[in-house]
Amino acid sequence: MLADDLRNSEIARLRGSFATVELMDVSTIPAALGLPGDVMSWDAVGGARSNRLFHVTTTAGQFAVKQLLNPWDDPQWLDWLHEAAGFEQACIDAGVAAAAIHLNPEGHVFSHVDDAWFRVHEWVIDGYACMPGPVSPDVARAVGRELAVIHGVGWQPSRDDVFPTVTGDQANQWPELVRSLRRVAPEFAAIADLVSEPVAQIGEWLAEPRVAEAPVMSHGDLDPKNLVLAGRTWLVDWDVAMPWRPVDEVARTAMSMANWSDPRIAVALLASYEAEAGIALTFERDCLTMDLAIGLDWLARCLRRASGLEACSPRRAQEAREQAVAQAASLRGRVVIADRVGEWLGR
């Protein structure tokens, strides 16, 4: 709980941080989360979009406190979170570089406080956020090794009906989205219309039969933003862990680390993964179709929120405007690369 002698100014600062999460009684939160010791500081961490993150220092240690949001409005979001957390712990037990999970006083990962959901990890001491890709070759190789270990864990979720499914619906409905945007926000309709051709291409690829391969539970979002560097490369933000075809996630992660711009970084990750897993992979357009479809789903949601077609908070609307422009700008180039990914990688 908060130290009795915490200065009034410090209390005010903490309340200012918590204003972001719209909680009324900040004094109840540390105890509910089971944070040991007295709170010395509670600082909002910038850059978090899907959730809200705080760096909390107590007299007993440092912690990453995350307020969990549901940016996808997924009705099974909490069930998905629980499956992801179980898998995350299994990977930690297998030696994957991930921050230790801190349980609340009831022994649970997730805590419900004042109508908000939280979870806690130990803070990675002296860690710093990885810069946007392309990452360094050493980081790419480290991620490749960790991903091979993750895929080898073989953890099976207790339920497989809680994870989102990827379909071609978004691509098929794109012309209707453009028409709807024209009625309310012509500037966003223009953005959507500019990418109609690559969107249609993604839809065609999604309709093609895929090579059958058993999915494995995996991280689901190994991106530079979810890496912390501190002696080794730490993998964070496991909340969207779900089943993936291994080759799809390897390809997706390689392209993310390369920022879709530096094939040398992608190749470094692929070679590291193959060496650790003891297998050789073949990369074709099919390996990136799911990644493109997920990006397309998010682009459509951003356009709806930015334009007002989908109600959201002012903060979410601003984030959506920024992301819609950035994602639309990169989509055509990514489709071109995906169509010749083997050539692009030199494999």
Results as ranks from 00 to 15, higher is better:
M1H: 09
D5C: 10
A12F: 02
R13G: 03
E22L: 11
T28Y: 01
L33F: 01
L35G: 04
D43N: 14
A44Y: 03
V45G: 04
G46N: 13
S50L: 13
R52P: 10
G61M: 11
Q62W: 14
Q67R: 11
D73H: 10
Q76A: 08
H82I: 14
Q89A: 11
C91A: 08
A98L: 01
A99F: 10
V109Q: 01
V120T: 02
E122P: 10
V124L: 08
I125H: 12
G127E: 03
S136W: 03
P137F: 01
V139E: 00
A148Q: 13
D160P: 12
P164S: 03
N172C: 10
L181V: 15
F188A: 04
A189M: 10
D193K: 06
L194R: 14
V195D: 03
S196G: 02
Q201Y: 09
G203Y: 06
E204I: 14
L206I: 15
A214K: 11
A214E: 15
P215Y: 06
H219Y: 05
K225T: 03
L227E: 03
V228Q: 00
L229S: 07
R232E: 15
W234S: 00
D237L: 07
W244H: 09
E249I: 11
V250D: 00
S256I: 04
N259A: 11
S261I: 05
D262S: 02
I265P: 00
Y273F: 08
E274H: 07
I279E: 06
I279G: 01
F283N: 03
F283I: 15
C287N: 09
C287Y: 02
M290E: 02
L296P: 10
R301W: 12
P314Q: 04
Q318N: 04
E319H: 08
R321M: 08
E322Q: 09
A326T: 07
Q327T: 09
A329Q: 12
V335D: 00
D339F: 07
G346L: 06
